[in-house]
Design a protein around this nucleic acid. Structure first.
Length: 112
DNA sequence: ACATTGACTAATT
DNA sequence: TAATTAGCCAATG
Protein backbone atom coordinates (compact mmCIF):
# COMPACT_ATOMS: atom_id res chain seq x y z
CA UNK A 1 0.00 0.00 0.00
CA UNK A 2 2.96 2.27 -0.08
CA UNK A 3 3.71 1.92 -3.77
CA UNK A 4 2.47 4.43 -6.30
CA UNK A 5 0.51 1.61 -7.91
CA UNK A 6 -1.52 1.23 -4.75
CA UNK A 7 -2.03 4.98 -4.60
CA UNK A 8 -3.78 4.60 -7.93
CA UNK A 9 -6.06 2.02 -6.36
CA UNK A 10 -6.77 4.41 -3.50
CA UNK A 11 -7.54 7.14 -6.03
CA UNK A 12 -10.14 4.89 -7.68
CA UNK A 13 -11.76 4.07 -4.36
CA UNK A 14 -11.81 7.72 -3.29
CA UNK A 15 -13.47 8.82 -6.51
CA UNK A 16 -16.07 6.04 -6.51
CA UNK A 17 -16.90 6.92 -2.91
CA UNK A 18 -17.84 10.43 -4.10
CA UNK A 19 -20.44 9.31 -6.63
CA UNK A 20 -23.80 10.52 -5.25
CA UNK A 21 -26.79 8.15 -4.90
CA UNK A 22 -28.92 8.05 -8.05
CA UNK A 23 -25.94 8.82 -10.29
CA UNK A 24 -23.25 6.69 -11.94
CA UNK A 25 -19.87 6.76 -13.70
CA UNK A 26 -18.37 4.54 -16.38
CA UNK A 27 -15.01 2.77 -16.12
CA UNK A 28 -13.72 4.86 -19.01
CA UNK A 29 -14.78 8.17 -17.45
CA UNK A 30 -13.15 7.29 -14.15
CA UNK A 31 -9.95 6.39 -16.00
CA UNK A 32 -10.01 9.74 -17.82
CA UNK A 33 -10.54 11.76 -14.66
CA UNK A 34 -7.73 9.96 -12.85
CA UNK A 35 -5.45 10.25 -15.88
CA UNK A 36 -5.94 14.02 -15.94
CA UNK A 37 -5.47 14.21 -12.20
CA UNK A 38 -2.27 12.17 -12.39
CA UNK A 39 -0.99 14.46 -15.13
CA UNK A 40 -1.78 17.57 -13.08
CA UNK A 41 0.02 16.20 -10.04
CA UNK A 42 2.95 14.83 -11.97
CA UNK A 43 2.30 11.22 -11.04
CA UNK A 44 2.67 8.21 -13.32
CA UNK A 45 -0.01 7.95 -16.03
CA UNK A 46 -3.08 5.97 -15.15
CA UNK A 47 -3.44 2.65 -16.96
CA UNK A 48 -6.96 2.73 -18.37
CA UNK A 49 -10.50 1.43 -17.91
CA UNK A 50 -9.41 -2.13 -17.18
CA UNK A 51 -7.25 -0.87 -14.37
CA UNK A 52 -10.33 0.64 -12.74
CA UNK A 53 -12.13 -2.69 -12.90
CA UNK A 54 -9.15 -4.49 -11.49
CA UNK A 55 -8.87 -2.05 -8.60
CA UNK A 56 -12.52 -2.52 -7.68
CA UNK A 57 -12.32 -6.31 -8.00
CA UNK A 58 -9.45 -6.28 -5.57
CA UNK A 59 -10.57 -3.65 -3.04
CA UNK A 60 -14.06 -2.61 -4.15
CA UNK A 61 -15.88 -3.71 -1.03
CA UNK A 62 -16.50 -0.65 1.13
CA UNK A 63 -17.32 1.68 -1.74
CA UNK A 64 -20.55 2.00 -3.79
CA UNK A 65 -19.20 -0.18 -6.63
CA UNK A 66 -22.70 -0.63 -8.08
CA UNK A 67 -22.61 3.01 -9.24
CA UNK A 68 -19.81 2.10 -11.65
CA UNK A 69 -21.06 0.71 -14.97
CA UNK A 70 -19.57 -0.02 -18.39
CA UNK A 71 -19.91 2.16 -21.48
CA UNK A 72 -23.21 0.47 -22.38
CA UNK A 73 -24.65 1.47 -19.00
CA UNK A 74 -24.66 -2.11 -17.79
CA UNK A 75 -23.10 -3.32 -14.52
CA UNK A 76 -20.52 -6.15 -14.62
CA UNK A 77 -22.29 -9.39 -15.61
CA UNK A 78 -21.18 -11.19 -12.48
CA UNK A 79 -22.99 -8.81 -10.13
CA UNK A 80 -25.58 -7.45 -12.54
CA UNK A 81 -28.68 -8.55 -10.61
CA UNK A 82 -27.49 -7.21 -7.26
CA UNK A 83 -26.24 -3.95 -8.75
CA UNK A 84 -29.47 -3.28 -10.64
CA UNK A 85 -31.50 -3.87 -7.50
CA UNK A 86 -29.43 -1.30 -5.60
CA UNK A 87 -29.58 1.18 -8.47
CA UNK A 88 -33.33 0.80 -8.60
CA UNK A 89 -33.60 1.48 -4.86
CA UNK A 90 -31.59 4.67 -5.28
CA UNK A 91 -33.83 5.91 -8.05
CA UNK A 92 -31.11 5.81 -10.70
CA UNK A 93 -32.56 6.45 -14.18
CA UNK A 94 -32.89 3.03 -15.82
CA UNK A 95 -33.90 1.96 -19.31
CA UNK A 96 -37.36 0.57 -19.99
CA UNK A 97 -36.20 -3.03 -19.53
CA UNK A 98 -34.47 -2.09 -16.29
CA UNK A 99 -31.21 -3.72 -17.38
CA UNK A 100 -29.08 -0.68 -18.03
CA UNK A 101 -28.50 2.80 -16.66
CA UNK A 102 -29.49 5.75 -18.84
CA UNK A 103 -26.09 7.41 -18.86
CA UNK A 104 -27.41 10.53 -20.59
CA UNK A 105 -29.25 11.33 -17.35
CA UNK A 106 -27.25 9.56 -14.67
CA UNK A 107 -23.62 10.28 -15.61
CA UNK A 108 -21.78 12.20 -12.92
CA UNK A 109 -18.57 14.25 -12.88
CA UNK A 110 -16.55 15.30 -9.80
CA UNK A 111 -17.42 18.95 -10.54
CA UNK A 112 -20.91 18.59 -9.09
C1' DA B 1 10.53 -13.67 -21.16
C1' DC B 2 5.98 -15.50 -23.13
C1' DA B 3 1.08 -16.51 -22.88
C1' DT B 4 -3.29 -15.92 -20.66
C1' DT B 5 -6.76 -13.31 -18.37
C1' DG B 6 -9.98 -9.64 -16.94
C1' DA B 7 -15.73 -5.75 -12.85
C1' DC B 8 -13.19 -2.41 -20.54
C1' DT B 9 -13.89 0.45 -25.05
C1' DA B 10 -14.57 1.86 -29.74
C1' DA B 11 -15.27 0.72 -34.39
C1' DT B 12 -17.27 -2.35 -37.62
C1' DT B 13 -20.87 -5.28 -39.50
C1' DT C 1 -30.08 -2.15 -31.70
C1' DA C 2 -27.15 -6.12 -31.08
C1' DA C 3 -23.20 -9.24 -32.06
C1' DT C 4 -18.23 -9.47 -33.55
C1' DT C 5 -13.32 -7.81 -33.70
C1' DA C 6 -9.41 -5.63 -32.51
C1' DG C 7 -6.96 -2.77 -29.25
C1' DC C 8 -5.63 -1.94 -24.67
C1' DC C 9 -2.88 -2.24 -19.91
C1' DA C 10 -1.42 -4.33 -15.86
C1' DA C 11 -1.36 -8.73 -13.17
C1' DT C 12 -0.40 -13.66 -12.94
C1' DG C 13 1.41 -18.23 -13.91
Amino acid sequence: MTDEQDEHVDAVLALVAQIPPGRAMTYGTIAEVLADRALAEGRRPFGGPRHVGRALARAGSGVPWWRVVNAAGRPPARHATRALALLTDEGTPLSEDGERVVLRRAIWFPDD
